[in-house]
Write a protein that binds this DNA or RNA. Structure first.
Lengths: 224, 224
DNA sequence: TTAGTGCCCGTACCACGGTACGGGGTCAAG
DNA sequence: CTTGACCCCGTACCGTGGTACGGGCACTAA
């Protein structure tokens, strides 16, 4: 697996050859060694892994700049240069990630609201998505239906989900409940996280709703 | 509220004047009427609503191209267009967002772990994000821990996918093939990345499998 | 009528994340 | 030692979603 030329690496990682050179110019990866001046680049496994990292992080919405920062974090870590600095930067990144998640969650709510309010059949005139989007909403892109209250995240352990379809069902059930602002469901982890106004619904009521759909559900308590 | 000039409209909608002209060039909005040749643009309420729509849809993660498609759907009053189509698109977007959130959550955990176990100084090997992201896996996050074989990422250009459902079908087909370890499929980019053991299946076989499901497929690998 | 906005248009430019090209050099198999 | 695939480098170019500039009209209030 070692000692690959650029073309091989590109194949393995799933990017173009030019892209790898581009990353090199951007200092995302270091210049690989070559046998002689002007010879071919020879890539180590470490660099290949680094490239995998870059690609995956990109899929998560990190920009190349941010990825460079993440990588710098790790590089610094192995040098154990300024451990406290690393920690600082890791915390900053953590904050970034939290914000990203929050923003996506807002987007998700908006989309879920759209999907819910559309009949899903019949002529376009019946589709409320257009109407909903024509409303003059807040500049921050606040969800269309939003009254700020004391939100909590409840985690449920759910059994019996085997596929994305099950996920959808559970999500739908949860979102039907009053007080539920949004949720994410994963059949892989068998877990749901529900953003909820606890003054309007209890965790046990949520679990019961899920059970009503044919799955098992337990409260996982202590959110973080 | 009617009969606004471009500056007023820009204020109301919350975009720049140039941006409105830009949308006009991009045919997202039609040329508004003017009193005389070379006179000022006069915008109707309908156009203002259209601009709101564009803004909101953008905030939800739709590209201008996708927004143009949505608008075209409505403009073509042909009744051929169906609310379910619009709903499909929203759901596909929703699905994208869900996946992204779930993965960001993983990253968050990794970063949090890094911060936690990095109180002052010392070597830290607990950086699970880095390890996690270095795996060659689909964005569904299946942890494809390397049982070292000659794995490769094959990229396929796939035509005919219009929604998240198509994505699912293609993903399913690909994952059924022997030698396929994982894949990510995007109907937006019309592309699939397949992590595969090339000693067990050829790229052409993969493409053929996709075609068998009713889509077009071409191998994108650089320098086949 | 005249000053002062505001808008007209075309064109240029920006950051981002690559992709393409072209004229050459490298490398390994036959 | 030739052939053909692969790689070298620099530079130019692409789509996306805008923003900026600048000379010249359109409108409006004094």
């Amino acid at each position: 697996m070692t000692d690959m030329t650029i073309g091989k690496v590109a194949d393995v990682v799933g990017v173009g050859v030019e892209t790898i050179r581009f990353y090199e110019r951007r200092k995302l990866i270091e210049q690989p060694p070559r046998p002689r001046e002007g010879g071919y680049r020879i890539y180590s496994d470490a660099t290949v892994r680094r490239l995998h990292f870059i690609r995956r992080a990109q899929e998560l919405g990190f920009s190349l700049r941010e990825i460079a920062e993440l990588l710098a974090l790790r590089d610094a870590e192995s040098n154990q240069a300024d451990a406290s600095d690393v920690r600082q930067r890791a915390m900053a990144k953590l904050h970034d990630v939290d914000q990203k998640i929050e923003q996506l969650r807002r987007i998700r709510q908006g989309l879920a609201a759209l999907v819910d309010c559309c009949p899903g059949q019949g002529p376009l005139q019946c589709c409320s998505i257009f109407d909903a989007l024509e409303q003059n909403a807040g500049p921050t892109g606040e969800p269309i239906i939003s009254e700020e209250t004391d939100m909590q995240t409840i985690r449920l352990s759910i059994g019996g989900m085997h596929c994305g379809g099950c996920e959808e069902i559970v999500r739908h059930v949860l979102e039907q409940q009053t007080g539920v602002k949004g949720c994410s469901v994963s059949h892989e982890s068998g877990e749901a996280r529900v953003a909820v106004d606890e003054s309007r619904i209890s965790d046990e009521q949520l679990a019961e709703a899920v059970r009503g759909a044919g799955y098992s559900a337990n409260i996982m308590n202590t959110t973080e």
